[in-house]
């Protein structure tokens, strides 16, 4: 871990997860400190309905504000946003969200790649991309682009992941900065926050 990678220039963390990532996300949320200055966006593959349940579930693990991302909403530090079910979540250069109900990408909507790639465009090197367990290639390309734009990329150790395919895909095509177990991620995020 080079010093510059772990500097405090970051503003947004985007976490992408699919099959087997729920427990990891809950674990990360439980670790996050109250004073976190980073904004967090969670893109989770799931069935069409039940998004409000997801917000409730996530809220129960953290004292930070958790909410479903709304279109044109401004991204605020210390807030946790969840991509709504069945829409792609895009990030605009003015740090607001757009929603888009277009074709699925990697059989998925929301697609992790779509959020990663637009987040790279908007945040560049102040972006942290985290890819977790899953049985799908979604997110790998986004991780690669984040890396190219000098963002920080962190992928769940495939051996630690319930389903190794998704993190393994990212590691195969990108020079990922950190390959870590799910349980270590919360503490790393805390360390990358200004306060």
């Amino acid at each position: 871990m080079a010093e510059n990678i772990l500097s405090k220039k970051y503003k947004l963390v985007v976490i992408g997860g699919s099959a087997g990532s729920m427990e990891v996300i809950l674990g990360i949320l439980a670790e996050l400190k109250r004073t976190l200055t980073l904004a967090i966006v969670i893109v989770l593959h799931r069935k069409k309905n039940g998004e409000s349940l997801l917000v409730d579930l996530f809220s129960s693990r953290t004292s930070l504000v958790v909410k479903e991302a709304e279109e044109k909403e401004k991204i605020l530090p210390g807030h946790i946003y969840v991509a709504p079910a069945d829409y792609h979540l895009l990030i605009e250069k003015d740090f607001t969200f757009s929603l888009d109900f277009s074709e699925k990408v990697h059989y998925s909507r929301p697609s992790i790649d779509v959020t990663f790639e637009t987040a790279v465009d908007a945040y560049g090197e102040s972006l942290i991309c985290i890819l977790l367990s899953g049985a799908n290639a979604d997110g790998a390309l986004g991780v690669k682009k984040a890396k190219e734009a000098k963002g920080l990329t962190m992928v769940q150790n495939p051996e630690d992941a319930e389903v190794s395919y998704m993190p393994a895909q990212a590691i195969a095509i990108a020079q990922v900065d950190l390959i870590v177990n799910g349980a270590e991620m919360g503490a790393i995020i805390n360390n990358l926050s200004i306060q």
């Binding site: 895009l90 990030i91 757009s98 888009d100 277009s102 779509v114 790639e117 637009t118 465009d121």
Partner: peptide
């Protein structure tokens, strides 16, 4: 139009 979306399309 929302720029990120247009660019993607």
């Amino acid at each position: 139009y929302s720029r990120a979306s247009i660019k993607r399309r």
